[in-house]
């Protein structure tokens, strides 16, 4: 789910920032400068205690509101905190899962996925209450009532194995993206190939965006048996390279000692062929 206004500020059309200036701006009275600074600090991963504390405070911001009642600054602060790998943000992000703004809940779930903190599991599970039957679209909005994709992926990334039975039914959800998120989580939680194969099947989907997404899921979970199907998928090479990189890096359990074997060499030969 892409929030329509998420990219309205880009590096090209905004004033250049320094970390010092961004920290100042995050606390200034101009709401648009605060919004941009929160995005910028995440984008450039400015990871200082001061930044993390200021962003945690911004998760409770009441000043920056949209006409529909959204909280733009909270969204950006939640997104940035996922990128800063500081688990002090976890309690604040968990609280954001109850926010009235869908996009704040989505950003928080995505960041909790990155932080992989088991404390978030109960609050994430709460968003799946009612199961697939309750997972319907909000009338007039471009999204479901909860950020199911992000929630399912977060539970998978956290490794919450006891949530399998709650996640499994989402494999049959009517939205392919939700099915993929469920398959991705189930594969992470069980390592059973049937879930990896579900993602492989999406590589045949007629929608290029879904094929790209399936590549990114396969790369993220490192489903090694997909290597050849990834290399021959009808998607731009850049996406295939990223997916194969995910497979390759998943093969190295010790990130410092690189031991090559037939599997990793084969992956690199596939990558070479896509250059």
């Amino acid at each position: 789910m892409i929030e329509p206004s998420a990219e309205q500020y880009t590096a090209e059309n905004a004033p250049p920032l320094t970390p010092e200036q961004a920290i100042v701006n995050l606390k200034c009275s101009d709401l648009s400068l605060r919004y941009y600074a929160a995005w910028w600090l995440g984008k450039f991963r400015v990871n200082s205690p001061e930044v993390v504390e200021a962003l945690i405070l911004a998760l409770e911001d009441e000043e920056d509101r949209t006409e529909l009642g959204g909280y733009p600054l909270r969204r950006n602060a939640a997104r940035a905190l996922g990128k800063l790998s500081d688990n002090r943000a976890v309690p604040g992000l968990i609280k954001c899962l109850e926010c009235s703004d869908f996009y704040v809940r989505e950003a928080a779930a995505q960041s909790l996925e990155m932080l992989k903190d088991t404390r978030a599991t109960p609050a994430l599970l709460k968003l799946l209450e009612g199961g697939v039957a309750a997972a319907v679209k909000v009338p007039g909005r471009p999204h479901l009532i909860q950020p199911y994709e992000a929630v399912l992926e977060a539970l998978g990334a956290i490794g919450a194995t006891h949530t399998k039975d709650v996640i499994r039914p989402f494999l049959e959800h009517s939205v392919v993206r939700v099915q993929c998120a469920a398959a991705r989580a189930m594969y992470q939680l069980t390592s059973e190939p049937e879930y990896g194969e579900r993602l492989v099947q999406v590589l045949q989907n007629g929608d290029l965006k879904l094929r790209r997404m399936a590549l990114s899921d396969l790369g993220a979970v490192g489903y090694i048996h997909a290597a050849d199907k990834i290399a021959s998928a009808s998607v731009e090479n850049s996406f295939k390279l990223i997916a194969l990189k995910g497979l390759l890096e998943n093969q190295f359990h010790d990130k410092d000692a690189i031991a090559l074997d037939d599997e990793t060499i084969k992956l690199m030969q596939l990558m070479d062929s896509l250059l």
Partner: peptide, 9 residues
């Protein structure tokens, strides 16, 4: 890591 692995190869 992927680049380091390719260097190793």
């Amino acid at each position: 890591i992927a680049v380091r692995a390719r260097v190793a190869l």
